[in-house]
Amino acid sequence: MQRLKNIALFQKKIFFTAIIFSIVLAIATGNLNMTGIYYFFISPLMHYFIYEIRDSNEYYYYFNIGFDKIQLWGSTLLVAVLIFLLVALL
């Protein structure tokens, strides 16, 4: 449970910025159904910007809990797929 909460903490930063960008982009292009696709592409970019560039030292927090970068990137891709599917089903 603690590990899941920590993954949620990691994803929270990516989610809020990526979803805002995706919705804004969808509104700008006039097609809200594209939100999921935009999120799928924007969230990895946000992951890269937030954790690889801006707050790169925060990786050590997750390393100390036992996550490695592959798992953290995997969680970003997993959430992206889930959001994509969720929007597609709506």
Binding site: K13, N57, E58, F63, N64, G66
Partner: peptide, 15 residues
């Protein structure tokens, strides 16, 4: 290294 080794980096690491 999970549960075996932890590391304090030079810069702050906590969110």
């Amino acid at each position: 290294s999970r549960h075996l080794i932890n590391y304090l980096p030079q810069k702050n690491f906590v969110p």
